[in-house]
């Protein structure tokens, strides 16, 4: 009697084992994951391709591009192209990437009434959010830094591929746009290799191609701003970038007040609005990145107006009271 129980258990185990191994070899597409550290955060890529060699080559090319763009856009590195620009006077020859990003930033900056401002580099430095958070700068220093910003102080000469800053104390910081642009570039590389995938760039998602090579869409989650380990809502998205701006990613607390990393160019302090997290989806990651930052600073009504000026882009705003505002017709599935 005891023996037959034993036999039954063993056969159940065998069936389970066989079943599990079948699951493992489904599908003809290969996939791989990789991660690397760049742009002050960790990037995770999930790549799908026809075979392992292609994916491996793709991985290497992606890594190279990340490293390359970091030498272009890094604010902290003294020998990056951006720093070269920030430390020099007069017209500086810069890679086309910087010009592309500046044009997007200026466009969004203008349409958002200055909410997005990539010229607040000295203000950002003052707050040290990325390097040494914990200190609230003096009001005096903030005002001094604010005196030296303004997108009208950037002059771009596209023919010569130069950019000049008319105010030597104004520093350009592209943190609000660079990761989105990175996604935009990496996506092209993924598609050029005949692959598809999901690129997670420190919270910015760049979807490349379609899932499974067919027309299948991706299922994407939006982090819950009130409990960032959880997913607030799910979207079905095609080949697009999904960028979320929120106060919960980088911040410090002092005397019970939370200071986050998205500074309002008008006040010089971390922005305050009725939005807890702003997500923008669309074809160009850099534009999404710029728009989501601007929306987060602007607040609900102005954010909706801003997005209206970009018809190819959609938004999903999670407000401080927990309610949601989204572009009409967006397929959103809100958890709970």
């Amino acid at each position: 009697m005891v023996k037959s129980i034993w036999i039954r258990m063993v056969s159940l185990l065998c069936i389970l084992g066989i079943g599990l191994s079948f699951c493992a070899c489904s599908g003809t597409r290969r996939s791989a994951s990789m991660s690397l550290s760049a742009f002050g955060t960790i990037l995770y890529f999930t790549l799908y391709g026809p075979d392992s060699q292609t994916i491996e080559k793709l991985g290497q090319d992606l890594r190279k591009e990340c490293e390359r763009l970091e030498t272009v856009f890094s604010f902290e590195l003294d020998d990056s192209d951006l720093s070269r620009l920030n430390l020099s006077e007069g017209p500086v020859k810069v890679p086309s990437e910087i010009i592309d990003v500046l044009k997007i930033a200026l466009d969004v900056g203008q349409k958002s009434g200055g909410a997005l401002d990539v010229t607040i580099g000295s203000l950002i430095k003052l707050w040290h959010i990325e390097t040494n958070p914990g200190v609230v700068p003096d009001e005096k220093d903030i005002q001094t830094a604010l005196a030296h910003h303004g997108m009208d102080r950037i002059v771009i000469d596209e023919a010569q591929r130069t950019v000049s800053r008319t105010d030597p104390d104004m520093l350009i910081h592209l943190g609000a746009v660079a990761k989105g642009y990175l996604g935009y570039r990496l996506r092209q590389i993924v598609l050029d290799h005949g692959c598809s995938g999901v690129l997670n760039l420190g919270g910015n998602l760049q979807l490349c191609g379609s899932k499974d090579g067919a027309d299948a869409k991706w299922r994407v989650g939006i982090a819950d701003p009130f409990s960032p380990e959880d997913v607030f809502a799910e979207l079905t998205v095609g080949d697009a970038a999904v960028v979320t701006s929120g106060a919960y990613a980088r911040f410090f607390e002092l005397n019970g007040v939370r200071y986050h990393h998205i500074l309002d160019p008008k006040t010089g302090y971390p922005s305050e609005s009725d939005i807890a997290s702003a997500t923008v989806l669309g074809p160009d990651g850099a534009v999404c990145d710029a728009l989501s930052t601007a929306c987060f600073i602007l607040g609900k009504d102005e954010a909706i107006n801003l997005i209206a000026a970009y018809p190819a882009y959609s938004y999903l705003l999670i407000l401080q009271d927990g309610s949601v505002e989204a572009t009409d017709g967006m397929e959103v599935f809100i958890h709970e």
Binding site: T46, V198, N200, G203, N204, L205, L207, K211, W218, R219, V220, G221, I222, A223, D224, P225, P228, V231, E234, V242, V243, T244, G246, Y248, A249, S277, T279
Partner: peptide, 11 residues
């Protein structure tokens, strides 16, 4: 686990 079934989470 990123929620099984989700391809990515933005945030």
């Amino acid at each position: 686990d990123s929620d099984p079934g989700l391809d990515g989470v933005a945030g």
